[in-house]
Simulated scan of single mutants.
Amino acid sequence: MIVSACGGEEGGPWSGAEDTASKALAETSAGLAQPSPAFIPQPTGPCPEFQDGTLTFRPAGIPARAVRIWMSDAARTLDGPLVFYWHGTGSQPTEATTGIGTTQIEAIKAQGGIVAAPTRDPAAGTFPWFYVSSTSRDDDFRVADEVLACAIQKIGINVSHIHSMGMSAGGLNTTQMSYRRSGYIASVATYSGGRTSTIPTQDSSNKFAAMIFHGGPSDQVVINFQTASQNYYNDLKSKSQFAMLCNHGKGHTIPTDARAAVWQFLQAHPFGTVPSPYAGGLPNTMPSYCQR
């Protein structure tokens, strides 16, 4: 899973408090902070009918993109979370079953939630995602916007629980998404991802939380992921955002022992959760190698 990274300029279609977004916000669980309607995207193309499997999304102005969706019929009656998963170089969307875990995916589905793992556009180049391949194209996040907008339109989601995860190139892309879509991202988890350059922030008022994993000194493929992860952690802490840094010590791998803890972390950090419930100390269910 080889990776590189670079920043770029913000882009993508946005609208104000349109009917669909307002309805979704109104139906979100009471008591939770919510993204501003200005940051909730509207569909820009025809939305597919949501079902478990691979669906095609057609955002205006960019090529159509296949996205692997995991969901159940519970999504038609419950407004659950939406978790994006970005795979590593040489991998594919089904990596989500390893990165998130099948048990956790089933838990998300039972809550009426959706896991969405986009396929790559070959035009991205050597690496699967445009910003990771040192381009300034916002296509991948415009696809994510379309998935979110269509999910709201077709079945409804809990907009306080929009999260992102990824490994390697996908971890770097999750880092990019956390800043570039901070208008709606609640919290994220990165496996061997991190920050290698300055990334523009969409909504600096949203202090999203992050659980940041790396594999120690041997976590190196093109770049040093221990350093990149430390840089991400340091930047968030400098902005008074809650972050956990977790050195699992196993090199460039997904720490499968931590998947239950990651899902617990995301659930504990919906949009606008400040201070973090972990600010006073990490739960004993968190990996022993994590620090805050």
Results as ranks from 00 to 15, higher is better:
Thr190Ser: 05
Ile254His: 03
Leu32Met: 14
Gly251Pro: 10
Lys207Pro: 09
Pro37Asp: 00
Asn173His: 03
Phe130Gly: 04
Pro287Ala: 03
Ile105Ala: 07
Asp203Tyr: 14
Ala279Glu: 15
Asn284Val: 09
Phe213Val: 00
Ile223Asn: 00
Pro275Ile: 15
Ile100Tyr: 08
Arg58Cys: 13
Pro41Leu: 00
Pro43Asp: 09
Phe130Thr: 01
Gln220Ser: 06
Pro13Gln: 00
Ser192Arg: 00
Asp73Lys: 15
Asn247Glu: 03
Ser168Gln: 07
Arg137Asn: 07
Ser238Trp: 12
Gly45Asn: 08
Asp145Leu: 11
His214Tyr: 03
Ala186Asp: 09
Val274His: 08
Pro48Thr: 04
Leu282His: 04
Gly183Glu: 12
Ser91Glu: 14
Thr256Arg: 12
Ser238Thr: 04
Thr77His: 13
Val83Asp: 01
Gly61Val: 09
Cys150Arg: 07
Asp235Tyr: 13
Pro122Val: 05
Pro255Met: 01
Gly80Ile: 11
Ala38His: 14
His252Ala: 09
Ile69Thr: 02
Ser197Gln: 13
Ser22Gln: 12
Asp257Ser: 09
Phe50Leu: 05
Pro217Leu: 00
Asp257Ile: 01
Val274Lys: 04
Arg195Thr: 14
Pro287Met: 01
Ala124Tyr: 09
Gln92Gly: 08
Ala209Pro: 04
Leu55Glu: 01
Pro93Lys: 15
His161Asp: 00
Cys6Gln: 05
Gly11Phe: 08
Lys207Gly: 09
Pro283Thr: 03
Leu236Lys: 02
Thr201Trp: 11
Gly99Ala: 10
Ile105Pro: 00
Thr174Met: 04
Gly45Arg: 03
Asn234Thr: 07
Asn284Cys: 03
Gly7Trp: 06
Ile40Val: 09
Thr285Met: 03
Val274Gly: 10
Thr56Leu: 09
Phe208Met: 08
Phe127His: 13
Gly125Ser: 05
Asp121Trp: 03
Ala30Ser: 15
Phe57Asp: 10
Ala26Leu: 12
Tyr131Cys: 02
Gly193Thr: 04
Ala17Cys: 13
Pro200Glu: 14
Gly156His: 07
Glu49Asn: 04
Asp121Gly: 10
Arg68Asp: 10
Arg76His: 11
Gly193Phe: 02
Gln153Lys: 13
Leu172Thr: 02
Gly101Trp: 15
Leu25Trp: 15
Asp145Ser: 11
Leu282Gln: 09
Gln153Thr: 15
Ser134Ala: 12
Asp145Pro: 14
Arg142Leu: 13
Ala38Met: 12
Tyr191Ser: 11
Trp86Glu: 06
Ala33Glu: 15
Gly216Asn: 06
Ser229Pro: 03
Ile223Arg: 00
Cys47Gln: 11
Val262Asp: 06
Gln42Tyr: 13
Ser15Gln: 02
Val188Gln: 07
Phe39His: 11
Phe242Arg: 07
Asn206Phe: 07
Asp203Leu: 07
Ser164Met: 05
Ala123Ser: 15
Trp86Cys: 02
Thr20Asn: 10
Pro275Trp: 12
Met165Val: 05
Ser276Asn: 06
Phe57Glu: 11
Ala64Pro: 15
Cys47Trp: 10
Asp145Gln: 11
Glu106Tyr: 08
